[in-house]
């Protein structure tokens, strides 16, 4: 089972969290066309590799968190409070382990 190192609570089992989707989708109510809006609602990139995403620590601090996880190895590279800048040392090319 995945271990997620919550910045508030420390390392916890992933069952305490709810996955809250990929990061970086923009909610543009004013100018999105219906097609764009539905892409926002339903479409995900879901790549094999590093992905930035949000988690909600529902059984712990009840905070939304931002993280980067490798969808192939399930390695979680970093977890920070939602809206905090990502650690700058990581790049998309860096590989797991």
């Amino acid at each position: 089972m995945l271990l997620i190192d919550c910045p508030y609570c420390g390392p916890r089992n992933s069952t305490e969290f709810r996955h809250a989707g990929e990061a970086g989708k923009s909610r543009d109510l004013a100018s999105a066309t219906p097609a764009q809006w539905r892409r926002y609602l339903y479409e995900y990139d879901n790549p094999l590799g590093w992905v930035r995403e949000s988690w909600f620590h529902s059984a712990g601090c009840r905070r939304y968190l931002s993280s980067e996880r490798h969808t192939g190895t399930n390695e979680v590279r970093w977890v920070v409070p939602f809206g905090t800048a990502a650690p700058s040392s990581t790049t998309d090319e860096e590989t797991s382990r």
Binding site: R18, F56, S58, R63, Y64, F82, G83
Partner: peptide, 13 residues
């Protein structure tokens, strides 16, 4: 409750 926190924590901080 989760839904309200989502709006407060991620959209209208």
């Amino acid at each position: 409750w989760d839904w309200l926190e989502m709006w407060l924590q991620t959209v209208h901080r």
